[in-house]
Structures are given as structure tokens and as C-alpha cells.
Amino acid sequence: MSTTTTPASGARTGSLNAGALPRAGTRSGSGAAPLKNNYSQLLQLVLFWMGAILMPTGIIVILLGYYGVANAVFDFDREAYAYSGGFLGLALTFCGGFLYFGAWLARIADDNRAASKRLADTLLVLADVTSRSAALSEKGVDTSALPVVAGNGTTIHRRDCALIAHREDLAPAGDNPNLTACRVCKP
């Protein structure tokens, strides 16, 4: 199976090869509900929008408090505006800033999680390629698939069969018709 791209629309058809990695920038979901069961992205989005609302609101409250202090005639009015506008505005601004910071940390954590998954997938592919190339002899023959017999046994195994992996007395099976095939490795 292979993935093909139609030239007119650029859409991909078919399925990916078993060893192929997904392309960068593609999403695995259908796109109908991108935040469903994706709590880290939902947390990032909520933190971002709460910060986007609270931070400018705090700045507006500070400016309203300043306007109230500047236009107040009596000292007790100035104190009320300074407390309500200044401290409440600072609190809202700092809370909004911390929520922005939390959204940024959630984004970094999500990016690190995705990078770790891509790295793990790449390492698995690399390990598979390395193990396959190590199993090839100089002539390009897959030595792990050669049928062998352990000692004077009557069962044919693959060389990489788990039942005979510890044995050192392996011999090529040849064309003996009296040998039976292993039920584990199925040579």
C-alpha cells in the first residue's frame, strides 16, 4: 500500500506504508472537534483567552482609577479610586499575565510531548532498519530467515526463533523431508 497524491487537488489517497512516518504539519484527527479529548490544548486555549481578557481589563481599570484620582475633589474620593482602580487593576493585570505565562508553558509542554513522540517513532524506525540491515549477510541474504535445526532435532526453526536463540549448535536444515516446521516462528 502506498500514499498517492492527486495532482489536481493535492489530496492524499490510500494509506501510509507500514514503516512510513506521518508528514509534518498534518493532524491525525478529522478536524470536526479538534479539542475533543485533547485536554492539554484545551487548557492552553482557556489560559490564553482568560489572560487575553484579564490583562487588558486590568489596564483599563488602572486607567479609570487614575482618571478618578485626577478628577476627584476630596481626598477620601482619591483614596477610593486609588484602591479600587490601582490595586484591583494591578491584580487583574498580574493575573492576566500569569495566565498568559501558563498558556505559554502549556504550549511548550505540548510541543515537547509531540517532539518526544516523533523522536520515539523515529528511533523505532531506525532500530528496525538497523536490525534488518544487521541480519543481512555480505551477499544480501536475510540470515535471520534461514531455516536451521538445533543439534540433532527434528524441527526446522528460523535462525532468530526465540526457542533456539540461546543455542550454539545450529546447523542448516537442508532439504530433509522428515523435519517438521516450528509452530512459534513458522519458517
Rank of each mutant, 00 (worst) to 15 (best):
Leu90Thr: 07
Ala91Pro: 03
Ser15Ala: 12
Ile164Ala: 02
Gly86Asp: 10
Leu124Ile: 07
Gly68Leu: 12
Tyr67Cys: 03
Asp75Cys: 00
Ile60Phe: 15
Phe87Trp: 08
Asn71Met: 10
Asp160Glu: 12
Leu146Phe: 04
Tyr66Cys: 11
Leu47Tyr: 15
Glu168Leu: 09
Ala32Trp: 10
Pro187Tyr: 04
Ala70Cys: 01
Leu54Phe: 11
Phe76Gln: 13
Gly86Ala: 09
Leu170Ala: 00
Leu54Val: 02
Val46Tyr: 08
Leu163Glu: 10
Arg27Gly: 13
Arg12Cys: 10
Asn38Glu: 13
Lys36Ser: 08
Ala150Arg: 04
Ala171Phe: 00
Arg23Lys: 06
Pro56Asp: 07
Thr143Asn: 07
Leu43Val: 08
Leu146Tyr: 02
Cys182Lys: 02
Gly51Pro: 08
Asn37Met: 03
Asn38Ser: 04
Lys186Glu: 01
Ala127Trp: 11
Leu136His: 05
Met50Phe: 12
Asp77Arg: 10
Arg27Ile: 03
Ser84Tyr: 12
Leu179Trp: 01
Ala18Met: 09
Thr122Cys: 07
Ala82Gly: 06
Ala115Pro: 01
Ile53Ser: 09
Leu146Ala: 06
Leu136Lys: 11
Asn112Met: 13
Gly29Gln: 07
Gly51Trp: 11
Gly97Asp: 05
Leu124Val: 10
Leu54Met: 10
His166Thr: 15
Asn38Asp: 15
Asn37Trp: 04
Asn112Leu: 15
Pro147Ile: 00
Leu45Ala: 15
Gly25Glu: 05
Phe87Gln: 09
Ile53Lys: 05
Val129Met: 12
Leu105Tyr: 09
